[in-house]
């Protein structure tokens, strides 16, 4: 369970990133955060594993405050949270399996990881994670030989190898084409359902949000302006979140999603 208690973020310039957010996300939810760019989606997501610092309030994960965690404590909390980035953030020159194993470094001593001495269970964990995203046969290829969609699936495998209970995905499909977008979103949904991993995704496609989310959170100017099940998120709701009618490039199109 993730809890935000009166969380605010003010940037050094005085811009308000998050304004007094109170939020509770239960284990196993598939939450999609929507909003215009600059509305605070990314800040909200990244404050959960403290890639972004907040200026006031408290964020608790399963009852433990990550806001006050430091050093080792913080790293232990972070290793329980997988993160997926828009630009994949794989080490392009390293092999796929090494990228996945990078998700395990938080579990071992510095020396051991620097020598690359991962225990056998870790290897198995990495391989089964790759298997889950259908990337097993690419294990020893270099990451830069893969397509964008494949790279994103490797980064999902990295989060799985972490044995994360939460996955944060910051615009995971923004640099992918429509077909691979669906594959990556399907992977995320499958993992969420099969393994019960709490999944929080930032998206800007209206139809994708409605299709995959169990719950949609709308963010505007650092505040939560909508929070409810995907079925309630009508076009009117989206217009309210965006402050204007939904435009065509905010729809991915493809599947017949308007019927939902």
């Amino acid at each position: 369970m993730i809890e935000f208690k009166q969380v605010s973020k003010v940037y050094p310039g005085g811009t308000v990133g998050l304004n007094n957010i109170d939020l509770k996300i239960e284990a196993g939810e598939f939450v999609v955060i929507v909003g215009l760019s600059g509305a605070g989606k990314s800040t909200l997501l990244r404050s959960i594993n403290r890639l972004h610092e907040i200026t006031s309030g408290d964020i608790r994960i399963d009852g433990k405050s990550i806001t006050s965690a430091e050093g080792r404590q913080l790293r232990v909390m972070r290793r329980g949270i997988g993160m997926i980035f828009q630009s994949f953030n794989l080490v392009k020159r390293s092999s796929v399996v090494r990228n996945v194993l990078a998700g395990r470094v938080g579990y071992h001593s510095t020396l051991r990881t620097m020598l690359g001495l991962f225990p056998k269970q870790d290897m198995e964990l990495a391989f089964s994670a790759l298997q889950r995203v259908n990337m097993l046969e690419k294990a020893y290829q270099r990451a830069d030989q893969l397509s964008g969609g494949q790279q994103q699936r490797v980064s999902i495998a990295r989060a799985l190898a972490q044995e994360a209970k939460i996955i944060l995905a910051d615009e995971p499909v923004a640099s992918l084409d429509p077909l691979t977008t669906r594959q990556v979103m399907d992977d995320l949904r499958r993992i969420n359902r099969e393994m019960g991993i709490t999944t929080i995704v930032n998206l800007h496609f209206v139809d994708l949000a409605r299709e995959y989310a169990t719950r949609i959170i709308g963010v505007r100017a650092g505040e939560i302006v909508f929070d409810g099940p995907a079925t309630e998120a009508t076009d009117e709701v989206f217009s309210a979140i965006y402050g204007r009618p939904v435009s065509e490039d905010e729809r991915l199109g493809g599947r017949n999603v308007e019927a939902i």
């Binding site: 594993n49 890639l51 790293r75 232990v76 080490v91 510095t110 620097m114 990295r158 944060l168």
Partner: peptide
Amino acid sequence: MGPSEALKACGANRLQTIWYA
């Protein structure tokens, strides 16, 4: 610096981040 950010998010310490990313 993307990979470094990813490693940081995995709970890696400073040396591990440098070594892996």
